[in-house]
Write a protein that binds this DNA or RNA. Structure first.
Lengths: 153, 153
DNA sequence: GATGAAATCCGAGTCAC
DNA sequence: GTGACTCGGATTTCATC
């Protein structure tokens, strides 16, 4: 992964801001010719500096307006129990984030559902049924101050 | 916010998957004419069902490879203290998420920095200096199992 | 070895139906 | 909602530094 030039970082910045920018617009914004801009941008994708371009769907529009954060503690801290948990959790469609962390929890999850009652159903049917789970702490999100903000660089 | 048709949901799904789809490609994927697809898509943007299209920048490529989750407890639970905290936190460039939650914490934060030492600097200079903060619990992310997964609907 | 200019081709966006 | 038409941008090639 080679170091990025000022121009490359600028392209990344603009594409993060608006992924629908045409190549012509992008070229103007970063002060290079369209041809150069096109090549640079493709290279950034190929090198994995940009992975995808995603439309940000309003969660409420697709019945996923309720956000819940969950802290999980496993029974035993063996490699097997972690692997089992991660495998089991992978299929959960409601799951947005899953992070192995150091601290009072083993995992922190971010989950989207339609309503609280849907979370409760999920809580009893899926979460406490996950392998090796000792404790689950639920944090209902009351207000989203900032959600998935773009990177500043 | 009127209900979405099967076609509209399909457009959302595809644009979430790949925001660079041309209108022609998108039309083919959802089985309508390009003209129709174009109007539908515009309507979806205007109604706010899609907010933006964003390039997903690889955090490590821009020196933000370390992810940290933070739980915050405020001193006093007054409307003023919450407002003050939210205002103060808004300017933090490293902040990706900030959620007011119900449970053992008042706020949960998601933060990206280059390295742990950068977080420590931030921890002492910014976090514990935020107004009305009683307690901060830090969860360094050891492994990102799932990060910002697309919505399933 | 990367750049910008030009040239071709294809899709965006608009219209009438 | 569809089909056609026009204009502008995407993408490639090529000469240049």
């Amino acid at each position: 992964m080679t170091d990025l030039s000022r121009i490359d970082r600028n392209i990344l910045r603009h594409l993060q801001e608006d992924g629908r920018l045409t190549n012509a617009e992008l070229a103007k914004a970063v002060n290079v010719s369209p041809a150069t801009c096109h090549r640079r941008t493709q290279a950034l994708f190929e090198a994995g500096h940009i992975t995808t371009v995603r439309g940000q769907v309003n969660p409420a529009s697709v019945d996923l307006g309720t956000l819940v954060m969950v802290g999980v503690v496993l029974d035993r801290s063996t490699p097997e129990s972690f692997a089992a948990f991660e495998k089991a959790v992978d299929g959960m469609t409601e799951l947005l984030d899953c992070h192995l962390v150091a601290g009072d929890f083993d995992y922190l999850l971010k989950i989207r559902v339609k309503e609280m009652k849907d979370f409760n159903k999920m809580h009893t049917k899926m979460l406490i049924a996950l392998p090796g789970v000792r404790q689950i702490r639920t944090f209902f999100v009351l207000k989203e101050i900032k959600e998935n903000a773009p990177l500043k660089f």
